[in-house]
Design a protein around this nucleic acid. Structure first.
Lengths: 115, 115
DNA sequence: AATTAACGCAACAATTCTGTTGCATATTAA
DNA sequence: TTAATATGCAACAGAATTGTTGCGTTAATT
């Protein structure tokens, strides 16, 4: 039973790690925050206020898009990016599993101590 | 009000990003899962079953320790590592903020459409 | 005391990541 | 049509990451 939980955690660790890695950069995390706050926005809009080049922002957006945290579509001469909730819901659920697993570990320890 | 949320998200984005970055690696994610499942464990124990060297695992553990996801203590000739929930609770809360911000964004869009 | 086990440190190569620059293309505006 | 805007592609340098190997130190075992 507790082994099932561990297997759940081990199974797609690779896929989950990609999402964490995509969020593991301050610039990208700020981009996600911006897009969660207001979508869609163009690359130029998202570059405004940053010290980085448009190209750098563009690259970061690609990284986020590769893991599905944002989506993009071309409209006229601009690329519009929008926040996509699914992957982040996924890792939130993953973190819940870790926390739950830890709770069970504590409960097990507690029962040993009390035995 | 909604600006407060955005500021909350922007403020310590750097610190949060470090935690995400630490989890953004399959090996490290598996180590966290192992330690959440059973703590404490020595480096040698944690290396068992991995294709990597003890040194590699040791480095990964340092990365996790640097962001506080795990803690370590020397006992005799071995270093024992244990899972620490605080940072992960922190990013879980952060993700909740992002999700909430997105909900508000949707609500705002909805109210515009319905106006 | 000698051997084994667990670990830390440091150096090295290979790879990946970041950000910039220069140039080309496509769309909109005047 | 001409000019301005928004973007994409590719090459480059610098930095950071990853994993290994070799060696030294400390602690437990026999």
């Amino acid at each position: 039973m507790s082994d099932n939980v561990r297997n759940d955690l081990s199974d797609d660790a690779g896929a989950q790690a990609s999402v964490f890695a995509a969020l593991g950069d301050e610039t990208r995390l700020l981009l996600v925050a911006k897009l969660a706050h207001r979508s869609p926005q163009s690359i130029t809009q998202l570059t405004t206020g940053s010290k980085l080049t448009r190209q750098a922002i563009s690259r970061h957006l690609r990284v986020l898009e590769d893991v599905g945290v944002v989506g993009s579509a071309r409209r006229g001469r601009e690329s519009l990016f929008a926040y996509r909730p699914e992957p982040i819901c996924g890792i939130a659920a993953y973190l819940d599993l870790v926390a739950k697993q830890w709770d069970q570990s504590l409960a097990r320890l507690k029962s040993i101590v009390e035995a």
